[in-house]
């Protein structure tokens, strides 16, 4: 699904990723863990195509196609989704309008018929239920006046609506209380199947209690220094990251 080879990236002439290799197969969930500043968020931003990052070496493939020259919208339409660490407030743009526009952009891209208002509402109501979200959410401007938990739920709502092949969850657990965390984890778990892949980015193992990854990688100073199974999370919680510093 996702193949990253020898990825080097910088921002403002500062080198952040210094040779990342990663292979995520269909149906797998990988977690990237690491301290603040280790390059975790840069990795997700580079995969989703944020402008100000420069790839200086290496490559990223989605199902055997290099994506590094694709626009962010093309990446999204091809099936990459990121749940933002800090979802952006968009004043004046109604959530329903936004979700419908996004879903229809995707349907159009896939050659499917665009949904009308009624068709869209049917799709979205079901997803709202799954996430225990009040339909009133839809009438509000995107993320405006949302609590931290509501914003994160809105991200997962978008994921369920757009049905990506590869979902990146960037610090999805930050700012969530335990109840919200459980609801989101259940939503994500239900979405897992043998074809969909996940990249979970976090610096606590808290989320990983509820969403169990197949693999965990530790990122330190722009490189993956250790990989292992889910038991690695417990080891990290116990020992911290210092024992991995070279």
């Amino acid at each position: 699904m996702l193949t990253i080879k020898n990825l080097h990236a910088e921002i403002d002439n500062k080198s952040i990723l210094k040779g990342v290799d990663l292979e995520v197969k269909p149906g797998e969930m990988h977690a990237i863990m690491g301290r603040n500043g280790s390059g975790k968020s840069t990795l997700s931003n580079v995969i989703t195509g944020r402008d100000n990052y420069l790839i200086t070496n290496g490559n990223i493939h989605l199902e055997n196609e290099s994506i590094v020259d694709w626009t962010p919208e093309k990446r999204s339409l091809e099936g990459i989704f990121m749940s933002f660490q800090y979802p952006v407030v968009i004043p004046g743009v109604n959530n329903t309008y936004f979700l419908k526009a996004a879903l229809n952009a995707k349907r159009k891209y896939l050659g499917q018929k665009e949904l009308d208002a009624a068709g869209f509402l049917k799709v979205i109501k079901e997803k709202l239920n799954e996430l225990d979200m009040d339909p009133k959410f839809l009438q509000r401007p995107v993320n405006q006046g949302f609590s931290g938990g509501e914003k994160k739920r809105n991200e997962i709502l978008q994921m369920l609506t757009l049905e990506p092949k590869l979902a990146i969850l960037d610090e999805t657990d930050s700012g969530l209380d335990i109840d919200a965390l459980k609801i989101i984890a259940e939503g994500v778990n239900r979405y897992r199947n043998s074809k969909r892949s996940f990249l979970v980015i976090t610096h606590y193992q808290r989320l990983l209690k509820y969403i169990q990854p197949d693999f965990i990688h530790v990122l330190i100073d722009g490189k993956i220094v250790k990989s292992g199974g889910k038991e690695l999370a417990l080891e990290l919680e116990e020992k911290g990251y210092n024992w991995l510093d070279s």
Binding site: G49, P72, R75, S76, F84, V88, I90, F98, A102, L162
Partner: peptide
């Protein structure tokens, strides 16, 4: 960027 990452053109 947020809107584009959801598939909307620039």
């Amino acid at each position: 960027f947020y809107l584009r990452s959801r598939g909307l053109s620039l």
